[in-house]
């Protein structure tokens, strides 16, 4: 087992970056933590600082104002770091891709490890995505 695999074996800590989104993806991410899905029982925890995180969840289309901040956050994060793009917006820009403020999608700005499509993806899909990713890397 390499160092990278070792890091992702247990208790993934997650930092959530909500870009220019419609809020639905954000809500569904929080929904994953509430009683019906309760991700915390697997040790998955939403943390307040990127410096504590193993996973960076990015949702929403990225506008010009978010772009530099996203890059800055990525640079501040301890590596190895898994980046997950959530929702149609995170993956491609979705309905906002033609907007005049659009500066994404996410993978043009930072490297992305997994894409979870959907508008918004169901909590089950988000969980499945993260579990798959952790399984592959760990």
């Amino acid at each position: 087992m390499g160092f990278k695999e070792f890091c992702f074996r247990k208790s993934l800590w997650v930092f959530h970056f909500g870009g220019a989104s419609c809020n639905n993806c954000d809500i569904e991410i929080i929904d994953c933590l509430t009683p019906r899905h309760d991700l915390e029982r697997f040790g998955i925890l939403l943390v307040g600082s990127i410096r504590h995180a193993d996973v960076l969840l990015v949702n929403g289309s990225i506008n010009r104002r978010d772009k530099d901040r996203l890059l800055e956050l990525y640079n501040q994060a301890p590596k190895p770091l898994l980046v997950v793009a959530i929702g149609a917006c995170g993956c491609t820009g979705g309905i906002f891709a033609e907007g005049n403020t659009f500066a994404g999608p996410v993978d043009k700005i930072i490297p992305v490890d997994a894409y979870i499509p959907g508008c918004p993806p169901k909590p089950e899909a988000i969980i499945a995505g993260i579990v798959k990713l952790a399984g592959k890397k760990g």
Partner: peptide, 14 residues
């Protein structure tokens, strides 16, 4: 604010 601006009114015209 402005972190969330997506230019919806303009998009709507298209």
């Amino acid at each position: 604010t402005g972190y969330n601006h997506r230019g919806i009114e303009k998009l709507s015209e298209s």
